[in-house]
Amino acid sequence: MKNVYDDLIKMIDKDRVRVDEPLKKYTFTKTGGNADYLVLPITYDEVQFVIRYALENQVPYTILGNGSNLIVRDGGIRGIVINLTQLNKIEILGTEIKVQSGATIIETSQKALSERLTGLEFACGIPGTVGGAVYMNAGAYGGEVSDVIKSALVIDKKGNILNLTKEQMGLEYRNSDIAKKDYLVLEATFDLKAGNYDEMKAKMDELTFLRESKQPLELPSCGSVFKRPPGMFAGKLIQDSNLQGKTIGGAQVSTKHAGFIVNIGDATATDYLNLIKHVQETVKANFDVELETEVKIIGEEVSSK
């Protein structure tokens, strides 16, 4: 497949096209196999070029943000992985913020604070990118993306760029029509309001303290692993199943917050997946509750490479 590399570097600087690249360098869990090709575009034209090239040449492609809510299986990812973290500009337009998808939602909330624009305080501790946050309608502490988003620029599965209104995004709890149709988010515009800096800062400091005191941020993890079951908390069910501290390989159910699985040393993605399965089976046996994963799981098993 050397011609894929040769074709890609005709359009994209060769420093931003990498071959057989270890994806554990790009995931929060520090696990995952290699990508055949990793591309780091810096313009929307480059993104569009890569997608259309992949479609025309039947090369599979995968979108990667900052790898925060993600597990890449140990067999890695075939074809092209498009990493969007170089697309990270944040622009203020009155009370609106236009943000490229590779910027983090934390950076965006901090920029809103500095401009005294309220509405994104809830996002001050969400570790993902804006693209990922829009894709899954991310939320925390009573707020979510759907509360403040105005529009989004996306690329569809044919490589066409579309401008979607909020209503066209089909935003719901940790899901959206963008995810269902597997569109790629290029940028989002958030509609905020003028706010009081001191009140906003106090709120964000409080949420940051809550997050840091409750979540195991000192260790690699993929964030909250499971969706909240209706009327319950996944962490509480896991804790009541006496699973905190349960370890498989280098992956452990956090002793600080049972909803997190942390890498305590040289964990593999397979360790993570085996531990997730064990947690699901145990909670099902104890409480007859099916825990659904919130984390996205992609890539191939080692044996299929």
Score class of each variant (00 low, 15 high):
residue 248 I to W: 11
residue 247 T to R: 15
residue 207 L to N: 10
residue 157 K to E: 13
residue 287 F to Y: 14
residue 12 I to G: 07
residue 287 F to L: 03
residue 94 G to Q: 05
residue 221 S to E: 02
residue 162 L to W: 15
residue 52 R to Q: 15
residue 41 P to C: 05
residue 231 G to S: 00
residue 145 V to S: 01
residue 248 I to Q: 06
residue 50 V to T: 05
residue 76 G to W: 04
residue 304 S to I: 14
residue 124 C to N: 12
residue 82 I to F: 07
residue 144 E to P: 11
residue 147 D to K: 10
residue 22 P to N: 10
residue 252 Q to V: 10
residue 139 G to C: 11
residue 274 N to V: 01
residue 302 V to N: 15
residue 57 N to A: 04
residue 14 K to V: 11
residue 178 I to S: 00
residue 198 D to S: 07
residue 251 A to L: 13
residue 119 G to L: 04
residue 288 D to Q: 14
residue 107 E to S: 09
residue 263 N to L: 09
residue 260 F to G: 00
residue 12 I to D: 08
residue 230 P to L: 09
residue 32 G to A: 02
residue 14 K to C: 10
residue 52 R to P: 09
residue 275 L to P: 02
residue 132 G to A: 11
residue 165 T to S: 15
residue 70 L to A: 05
residue 175 N to P: 06
residue 227 K to I: 01
residue 177 D to K: 00
residue 88 N to W: 10
residue 266 D to K: 13
residue 59 V to P: 07
residue 247 T to E: 12
residue 216 P to F: 05
residue 160 N to Q: 06
residue 128 G to Y: 00
residue 5 Y to V: 02
residue 74 D to E: 08
residue 301 E to W: 15
residue 130 V to R: 01
residue 118 T to Y: 13
residue 17 V to R: 08
residue 95 T to A: 13
residue 187 E to H: 07
residue 224 S to L: 07
residue 29 T to K: 00
residue 176 S to A: 00
residue 232 M to F: 12
residue 250 G to F: 12
residue 135 Y to V: 01
residue 235 G to H: 10
residue 245 G to D: 10
residue 87 L to G: 08
residue 68 S to Y: 00
residue 234 A to S: 11
residue 187 E to M: 02
residue 262 V to Q: 04
residue 263 N to M: 08
residue 210 L to I: 08
residue 226 F to G: 02
residue 114 S to G: 08
residue 45 D to M: 07
residue 141 Y to I: 08
residue 288 D to P: 06
residue 31 T to V: 14
residue 42 I to E: 15
residue 106 I to Q: 15
residue 91 E to N: 09
residue 177 D to Q: 04
residue 118 T to M: 11
residue 251 A to H: 12
residue 206 E to V: 00
residue 122 F to V: 02
residue 95 T to N: 15
residue 190 F to W: 01
residue 99 V to H: 05
residue 285 A to D: 15
residue 55 L to N: 14
residue 202 A to V: 03
residue 45 D to F: 08
residue 196 N to A: 00
residue 248 I to R: 07
residue 295 V to W: 03
residue 24 K to Y: 12
residue 212 E to R: 14
residue 181 K to F: 14
residue 112 A to H: 12
residue 37 Y to L: 00
residue 171 L to M: 14
residue 35 A to K: 02
residue 246 K to E: 13
residue 297 I to K: 04
residue 162 L to V: 02
residue 280 Q to D: 10
residue 225 V to L: 12
residue 206 E to P: 06
residue 41 P to N: 03
residue 223 G to Q: 07
residue 287 F to P: 01
residue 53 Y to P: 12
residue 23 L to S: 05
residue 97 I to T: 01
residue 70 L to R: 03
residue 83 N to I: 01
residue 114 S to V: 02
residue 289 V to N: 09
residue 7 D to I: 02
residue 148 V to I: 14
residue 256 K to Q: 13
residue 20 D to L: 04
residue 251 A to V: 11
residue 28 F to D: 12
